[in-house]
Write a protein that binds this DNA or RNA. Structure first.
Ligand code: NAD
Ligand code: NAD
Lengths: 227, 227
DNA sequence: CCTGTACTGTGATTGTATTCACAGTAGCTC
DNA sequence: GAGCTACTGTGAATACAATCACAGTACAGG
């Protein structure tokens, strides 16, 4: 669960404190670094230089080094970065070194696709429980996870120690749902519903609007025609 | 449906030329503005001030006005912005005033969820054709759209006049697939596969990595604990 | 018709992210 | 073990985005 990296065993912690103020964009790139590092690890690569890693991720070497330097020094000056260790370190920074429980709201087409997706477990997220308002769905089990009604919300979130939720329900009543989830102590929301939500100040929201991405692409293609 | 606004009627085109260099973040916000404008329109609101619209979207009034000013002047100084007209204008800027054909690659769990999603049509995108390598799926019809094999790729993309694709296949062979799609003249890729792809310089790629979003949230929650 | 009000559009300013460029050094060569 | 090489980590410089603040103006009210 969310135990805090057990003992001192896997420490030799290279990261200083993360006090240097880390930008959000840096955090997003950390995920990409880790994904590539895991691939390299599978391929048996032990060390990698900033140039090579940056090329694989698609950023400049300077940016990669700057990003990492927000957390301290990892690199061996002439061998580069230790692939395995740096992957572990990024995991520790992001808190994905231990599996976290996540709850899903809305077991519709999208929700079921997310449920059957293996990629989350690989990155340390376990959808532990699902919720829906549809009485046909409540009580059933989807991809191994039970679907609860909203009346069990507080109980179930506490029981599974959920601190992050995925929203894939309908726009109607979404804000009320969010208020209730936040009141239950959840501070992170991944929202797929194309509707703005507001939360207490200590919460974090990530919106994913797929149509907006298509619109962005449409704009880019169109505006590049005259280029 | 997607007829093109008939004649000169709704013109009096307020936007200048889009030559002032528009930042990507501005474009992303345009989608959000349009979504709220449509809601206001449904509610029968005719005019809206920058303060109110900004509050609904969650940005500052200054930013909203700055974003719009990249495209020219729309606002009536004392009544504010005409809700209907500005929605239309943003649609025109983004090229979503007429429906565009999109192709989907990979009719798996995610692909089928996308196929059944009505939100795309509402925003001017029509998934016209799907592709898969699975011989069980090729030839079948999913949510009204036929699934083609990859051998028909060039023909079908041309037939439906596809200029944007959604990638929801497997990581294996993805780059080769992308190369072929790009060679067929497609310049916009919405990629759900957690694998970096490279394209010719005149193409645009939007990646959507859902796990990365969860990782970002995990980092934020964790790093805010000490705050 | 004139004055006051409250809005937009935008130059100027501030703040933030990225890139440059190099000091400092671990290891490799001879 | 001295010298060379090529790398990392980071201060300084640049580029970019957000915010401030106000000039200019359409309208309401009298
Ligand atoms: N399907 C997609 O590809 C896709 C893409 C982008 C965004 N979205 C958004 O994701 C959301 C879900 O999409 P979908 O296609 O799965 O829709 P869906 O209609 O198939 O499923 C929605 C599910 O949410 C449940 N629900 C409704 N209100 C709820 C509530 N208050 N609490 C818990 N559950 C509730 C419904 O009973 C239903 O089972 C929608 O808001 C949609 O706009 C979907
Ligand atoms: N399911 C999710 O919720 C989810 C979430 C995030 C990312 N993704 C990613 O989206 C992709 C699809 O996910 P999924 O759950 O639908 O997987 P899936 O295995 O259910 O479906 C993949 C489909 O793509 C087809 N395919 C494989 N190679 C292809 C090719 N070269 N051309 C065309 N079709 C091809 C397969 O035959 C299959 O039908 C995966 O890469 C996955 O990592 C999925």
């Amino acid at each position: 669960m969310n135990q805090q990296s057990g003992s001192v065993v896997d420490s030799q912690a290279p990261e200083k404190r993360a006090d240097k103020h880390v930008s959000l964009q840096t955090v997003e790139r950390l995920s990409a670094y880790r994904r590539v590092l895991e691939e390299l690890d599978r391929d048996g690569v032990d060390y990698v230089h900033s140039h090579r890693l940056a090329a694989l991720v698609g950023v400049t070497p300077a940016q990669l080094r700057r990003d990492l330097s927000s957390f301290g020094s990892f690199g061996n000056i002439s061998r580069g970065y230790n692939v395995y260790q740096m992957g572990r370190t990024i995991g520790r920074i992001m808190g994905t070194d231990a599996t976290q429980a996540v709850a899903l709201f809305g077991v519709g087409d999208l929700g079921r696709a997310l449920l059957s997706y293996r990629g989350f477990e690989e990155r340390g997220f376990h959808i532990a429980a699902t919720f829906d308002v549809d009485s046909e769905k409540v009580g059933r089990v989807f991809a191994g996870r039970r679907c609860y009604g909203l009346d069990a919300l507080e109980t179930v979130l506490a029981e599974f120690d959920v601190h992050m939720v995925v929203l894939a329900s309908r726009p109607e009543g979404l804000q009320a749902l969010v208020d209730r989830i936040a009141a239950a102590g959840v501070r992170a929301f991944l929202n797929f519903v194309p509707k703005r939500i507001t939360t207490p100040a200590d919460c974090f929201v990530e919106n994913t609007d797929i149509s907006a991405k298509l619109e962005k692409l449409s704009f880019l293609v169109r505006s590049a025609i005259g280029t």
